[in-house]
Computed example of a mutant assay.
Amino acid sequence: MEATIEKQTLLNELARPYELNSETIAFYQKNGYVKLKHVLSQEVLSYYGDIITELVFRLNTLVKPMEERTTYERAFLQIMNLWQEDEQAKEFVFSKRLAKIAADLMEVQGVRLYHDQALYKEPSGGITPWHADQFYWPLTSPNTVTVWIPLQETPMEMGPLAFAEGSQSVEISRDIEISDESEKILADTLQKQNFPLNDTPFALGEVSYHAGWTFHRAGPNVSDRPRKVMTMIYMDKDQTVMQPRNSFQVADHAKWLGSVPVGSKPQDTLNPLLFSY
């Protein structure tokens, strides 16, 4: 009985609204990202973090030595759509608390899940090069946002996420995949255009939300512990699927959107509605 009560407490937290003030929403709208403290408790992060970690190491297929990996492969172990693999992982991914924040930041009436992904940067894991996520997504509207949830305190040595403030609103280098080339080109371009950089540690329970076209990166993990992160990508519930513009978007259209017709809305089966007013 006690275990049931404790689990219900965790579920209640994942459903409880996290209220945003107008200044926070305005900051996100202007800068394309926001960091929020005390979003999730240590208890929630510990309980679901253990479940997510077990899934990551069970489902991971990247076993090459670090020195044999590409820059992208050195950045992190990447496991997608844990919600389809485990009912308890689904509880976390479907959190109304987290989804409501996404809707409120984008100022939309509701959000669907595009997909989730665990991103585990191993000890000695390399940089995550500068990139914008929406390069990969065949979605018409820029109303997309990723919540980045460290499952532990994340000091600078572990490679926390960093953001180029305001970069979501400028159409620069939107045709480049994540790579050594994107790191060099975007680092130069963002510096020349004087975009402020937010590169700070994450406290336990702190999460970030960044827009699909916001440029971001992460440093290497030079600690002796894995940097464990869970993410969910949300889109406006009224998002429309567009004609893919590159091979990555062709693949995403099939895998994450079920190849629904161009011009149609994502469907509930693969892209469930997680919050709506």
Rank of each mutant, 00 (worst) to 15 (best):
L82C: 07
A251H: 09
S22I: 14
F76R: 13
H210N: 01
A118H: 04
P17C: 14
E181C: 01
K121T: 01
E107A: 15
D104T: 03
Y33G: 02
Q168R: 07
V44F: 04
S179E: 10
P201Q: 06
Q78V: 05
S95M: 07
L151I: 13
K64V: 02
N81E: 15
P129K: 10
K265R: 15
F202R: 03
L161A: 12
L62W: 04
P17S: 12
N21W: 07
K192L: 10
V262P: 02
E43M: 07
A164M: 03
F92K: 01
L98R: 00
A187Y: 08
R16A: 15
N143Q: 09
E183S: 00
K100F: 04
L190F: 06
E73P: 05
E165A: 09
F57Q: 13
L190E: 14
L10G: 03
V147M: 01
P160M: 00
V260W: 05
Y120M: 15
A203K: 04
F215V: 10
M232C: 10
G219L: 02
L190R: 02
S182T: 01
E23L: 06
Y209E: 10
N31L: 13
A118K: 01
M80Q: 09
L139F: 12
T128E: 02
V147P: 00
D236F: 05
A211S: 11
T53S: 15
S141R: 04
Q152D: 08
L62C: 06
Y33A: 00
P196L: 06
P220M: 08
V147T: 02
N271R: 12
L273R: 07
S22N: 14
